[in-house]
Every structure is written in C-alpha cells, then in structure tokens.
C-alpha cells in the first residue's frame, strides 16, 4: 500500500487542481511513498474502541442578534482581483458550446 504509482500522483494532483511538471511527478512519487510508509505505522494502533477527535474544544452554535453590521465594501473585496470587470470578478470561460 505504501508505494504509490505515477497514475496515483496524477489522479491526486487533478483532485487538488495542481499542475505538476514531469520532474515534479517523479519526485512526488518517491517522496510521497516514503512519507506514506512512515505514516502507515498508525495502522498498528488499536483504535477499535476509540472515537475520532476533530477539534480539542467543544464547539457550540453561537447566536447573536440579527442586526446589520458594516462589512467589506465591494471595492475592498475586488481590490486584489487579478482580473475584474466592475462590479464583477472576471473569470475565464467556464462552459463552452458542445462540451
């Protein structure tokens, strides 16, 4: 289980929306295999009667009065956008005819 294939690396990179060069894929394949081998030692721990901990503090819903408060202005929210077409963010084509 510890060795992961080149296909695995490419699959995970697609899930992560991450472009990797061929050299990066090679390096990632060997480094991730080494790291996963170390991580897999967890399988030896008996956790059959143990629940998972997602957070160390008990989170509860917090209610506040439904009052209008100042937020970011549109200008402030758009100020860092790489491409903008006021008052919108501009993004590349999402859908194309015939696809």
């Amino acid at each position: 289980m510890a060795t992961i294939s080149r296909d695995d690396v490419e699959h995970v990179a697609r899930l992560a929306r991450l472009h990797l060069t061929d050299a990066e894929i090679d390096r990632m394949q060997s480094q991730l295999s080494n790291i996963l081998e170390a991580i897999e030692t967890l399988q030896q721990v008996d956790t059959s009667h143990v629940g998972p901990t997602a957070s160390v503090i008990q989170l509860e819903n917090v209610m506040r009065e439904d009052a209008v408060r100042p937020g970011l202005t549109r200008d402030a929210a758009l100020a860092n956008a790489p491409r903008r077409d006021d008052p919108f963010l501009r993004v590349p084509t999402v859908l194309r005819e015939g696809r």
């Binding site: 967890l42 721990v45 901990t53």
Partner: peptide
C-alpha cells in the same frame, strides 16, 4: 484513523 489516534 489519525483522528482516533488524536483521541488517544
């Protein structure tokens, strides 16, 4: 699994 070991 990691979250369970976190509990331990």
């Amino acid at each position: 699994k990691a979250q369970q070991v976190r509990t331990l």
